[in-house]
């Protein structure tokens, strides 16, 4: 018998006494915040992780993002990043199948996001246009992420709902809550391990 048949047979035999529940489980929902509360909470919770977070108006976005870099910084830009953002950068590096070493040599990366989660201060990338493949936001040491007010949801259940279509279409997701960190030495949280050591979130509203 194949391992597959044997394991499935053991599972069925073990559960002979069980009648399974067929309805999916729905987690408890909290009170819906107002728009202003939601965005304020998002900013507060992102900052809690010692990420830098700023609110800018749409009209100032490109100039503001450009101002975050030193003149010589090589900044990776994924396909689909809004053109005015790319145009404002002094040294944009397009992702023409950049190797890991190329990404390691870059100073930063600028992307958009798919969803922001206010309650947990999380940004989620679904790696669609403007967000690039997963390695782009991983290897460079600094990640500047542009999040739009309408992308920020209140909590995790709303985020899961909003991301369902991307997951069903096979897109990978990366949930990011602050810069890379570890609690592995004496359970004391310190920022800055393998992922970007600096996370800069720009909220457009």
């Amino acid at each position: 018998m194949s391992a597959r048949e044997e394991i499935l047979g053991r599972v069925r035999a073990a559960l002979a006494d069980v009648a399974p529940a067929t309805e999916p489980v729905v987690g408890p929902l909290a009170v819906e915040p107002t728009d202003a509360e939601r965005l304020d909470l998002f900013v507060e919770r992102v900052a809690d992780y010692r990420a830098v977070v700023e609110r800018v108006a749409e009209a100032d976005l490109a100039a503001h993002v450009a101002s975050l870099f030193a003149p010589g910084d090589r900044v990776v830009v994924p396909p689909g990043l809004p053109e005015d953002l790319v145009a404002a950068l002094a040294h944009p590096v397009a992702d023409n199948a950049l190797g890991a070493a190329d990404l390691d040599a870059a100073d930063a990366v600028v992307t958009t996001a798919a969803v922001g989660i206010a309650e947990t201060g999380t940004i989620v990338l679904d790696h669609g246009p403007g967000q690039g493949r997963r390695a782009l936001t991983l290897v460079p040491d600094r990640h500047v992420c542009v999040v739009r007010a309408e992308q920020v949801v209140a909590d995790v259940p709303q985020a899961v709902t909003r991301l369902a279509a991307a997951v069903r279409s096979g897109q990978p997701l990366t949930w990011i809550s602050g810069p890379s960190a570890t609690s592995d030495i004496e359970l004391d949280r310190v920022e800055g391990v393998h992922g970007p050591r600096a996370l800069h979130v720009v909220l457009v509203d």
Binding site: R45, H127, R133, P172, W175, I176, G178
Partner: peptide, 16 residues
Amino acid sequence: RMNPYTSVWSGVREGD
């Protein structure tokens, strides 16, 4: 409230 990184992937993603 949330861990720094969560990865979700479904099999092979072309070019990524």
